[in-house]
Simulated scan of single mutants.
Amino acid sequence: MITKLSTVFLVLLSAMSLTACVTQNYGNDKSTPLIENETSNNEIAMTRISLGLGYLKMGNTQQAKLNLEKAKGFAPNLVQVYTAFAHYYETVGEAELAIDAYEQALNINSKDADTLNNYGVFLCRQEKYAAAEQQILKAIAVPSYILVAQSYENLALCQLKAKQFNKAQTYFEKAIAHSPNSASSLYQMMRLQYAKSDYKLAQRYLYRYEKSTRRFSAEALALAFKIFKKQGENAIAKNYGNMLVKMFPYSFEAKQYILNELYRLDADKLAEEYQDSLVGDKNTTNKKRVVVLSPKVVSISEKSDLSNRGLKPIMANSVMPTAKQGVEAKEKNKAAMVSLPIHTVAQGDNLSSVALQHNVAMNSLKRWNKLRSPYILKIGDVLYLADPKLAAKH
């Protein structure tokens, strides 16, 4: 299942523009001062944080903690020190200590949006869904926060985990409104609509996904196959199946396509969970209304139920890149992404117009797609706009 929550990693070390301290020492001649530049304590602390996270990534927890302790010694009031400690404690399975580290970070700066976002991610992992929603919304409410789309996607993924499908859809819509070309949000909406059996809407999100990115995964192609298969569009479905086998011949999805035409995807499991939720709500559907919280700045002192929460830190360092980390620790390894531009045939298209639209030679289109005279195209056909053999090698 591609259900990732974004943990924000800030590369602050190179961006910090701190003024170096200047100290005055004296040589043998006490009357002659020697001026020396001394790196600021915050910069030293950031370097130690970077080293500590690097060691943690390699699995050397002893050296990781040693460097984080040294960072704390240099800058005991630096937010990044405590978010780094929270990440360390989460990694070694000390949830309560991670909570303490997060609370210290937020006591220093209650509007650190990155910390709030990661706090919510961790709470979601601990299945504290309401608390996770509250913390991520605090991050979104910070005026200077720019990763709003990612945080809304986090909220949506967390609601999926909580089996709150309507709320998940609302937050995905907000994520897409803030970032209309976000491939991950579009893919997740495609997956959710498939689970809800709205295959036409899933198809529309598929086309938006294809337009927003030229990078495909085995999972996306497999889901596209199922969307058209469910609608009885077998020819189009087969095109996607062929792409899957050509581009990802060794992937789990390709093997399942060959064996049983992708009888059961992860999205099918999500569909079962959605149906189960409808059965559970059958007697209360008309009585209950879905409430979606709005971003609201809440004081750090409002911690009525924090004692039972797990926390997830945000890291400021120069070792770990800005990246998304999965909510599920056992998320399966996904096939490598492959760049390959395509064109989905629409009404009025012909080989000449497609070649002209994408500025490629007709002979190349024929060769790449193994087309033979009289070159009849059908609506929904998928045409390669580059050599699939070359793309598959990358």
Rank of each mutant, 00 (worst) to 15 (best):
M1F: 10
L5M: 12
T7E: 06
L18C: 03
L18Q: 04
T19K: 08
C21L: 06
G27P: 07
G27A: 03
G27C: 04
L34I: 15
T39E: 10
N42V: 15
N42T: 14
E43I: 12
R48L: 15
I49G: 07
S50K: 01
L51I: 11
G59P: 00
G59E: 09
Q63L: 14
A64W: 15
A71T: 00
G73P: 03
F74K: 06
P76T: 10
A86G: 10
Y89R: 05
A95R: 00
I99F: 11
Q104V: 15
D112G: 02
A113Q: 04
L123W: 06
L123I: 11
Q126W: 02
Q126F: 07
E127L: 08
A131S: 14
E133C: 04
Q134I: 04
A141M: 05
A141S: 11
V142N: 05
S144K: 06
L147A: 15
L157W: 13
C158A: 13
L160D: 00
K163H: 13
K167D: 07
K167W: 06
F172Q: 05
A177V: 06
S182A: 05
S185L: 01
M189A: 09
S197T: 08
D198T: 03
A202W: 01
Q203R: 11
R204E: 13
R208P: 08
T213H: 07
R215G: 06
L221D: 01
E233D: 11
Y250T: 08
R264Y: 11
L265P: 04
A271V: 02
E273G: 10
Y274Q: 03
D276I: 09
V279L: 12
T284M: 15
P295G: 08
P295Q: 08
R309I: 14
L311I: 15
P321Q: 10
T322C: 15
V327F: 14
A329T: 00
A329Y: 00
E331N: 02
M337S: 07
N350Y: 10
V360F: 09
M362N: 02
K378H: 09
K389H: 11
